[in-house]
Simulated scan of single mutants.
Amino acid sequence: MPMPGPGPAPWEYTLYIPHDPRAVGICRRALRDILTTHHLPTLLEPAELLASELLGNAIRHTKGPAALKLRQSGPSFRLGAWDTDPTPPPTTYPRTHDEHGRGLRLVDAYADDWGWFQVSAASGAAGKYVWCELDAKSGPG
């Protein structure tokens, strides 16, 4: 019996965006194209929601540019938002009926895992990176 192949080759994209709320929609469309190209249709809706929340926070709460980073390696798909503010995301969630601040609650509910880390100035892009992962095993491999 033949052994299964190693699966799809890992890939990574980074979309750098200006500090402009319209960039969130542009990134959602690019994300949809990228996931469709890589045959991951089951990730389209949750990934769009998560990218919208992470990038929306980056644009809403910081003053500089941002980036959406996408990566698949093995069974996990990671997306994240980099921004120029090193301040950690909040560790508590607002009440469910509050007007703002529900984004990380959605990330926590939809992502299989998430976290953040500060990015040092030595890397050339100081700030923070908030990431989340989705299980990509359900896509063809």
Score class of each variant (00 low, 15 high):
60 R>Y: 07
141 G>L: 08
51 A>E: 09
14 T>F: 03
62 T>E: 11
73 S>V: 06
32 R>Q: 12
97 H>W: 12
134 L>V: 09
25 G>N: 13
19 H>I: 00
27 C>Q: 00
80 G>K: 02
44 L>M: 08
59 I>H: 07
50 L>D: 04
1 M>V: 11
48 E>N: 14
3 M>W: 10
101 G>T: 01
99 E>C: 03
16 Y>S: 14
75 P>M: 01
8 P>N: 05
137 K>G: 15
103 G>R: 08
28 R>S: 13
100 H>P: 02
62 T>V: 05
28 R>Y: 04
85 D>R: 01
120 S>Y: 03
61 H>L: 11
62 T>I: 06
64 G>S: 08
84 T>F: 06
30 A>C: 12
92 T>G: 03
58 A>G: 00
67 A>K: 06
131 W>C: 05
114 W>D: 02
9 A>C: 07
37 T>F: 14
19 H>V: 06
21 P>S: 11
60 R>D: 14
69 K>F: 02
97 H>M: 06
68 L>S: 07
85 D>I: 04
32 R>L: 13
120 S>M: 04
32 R>I: 02
69 K>A: 11
101 G>P: 02
39 H>T: 12
42 T>D: 15
9 A>H: 08
95 R>L: 09
114 W>K: 06
83 D>C: 08
46 P>T: 02
65 P>I: 04
16 Y>I: 15
24 V>W: 06
65 P>N: 14
98 D>Q: 12
113 D>W: 11
93 Y>P: 01
136 A>V: 09
113 D>G: 03
23 A>R: 10
75 P>E: 10
46 P>K: 00
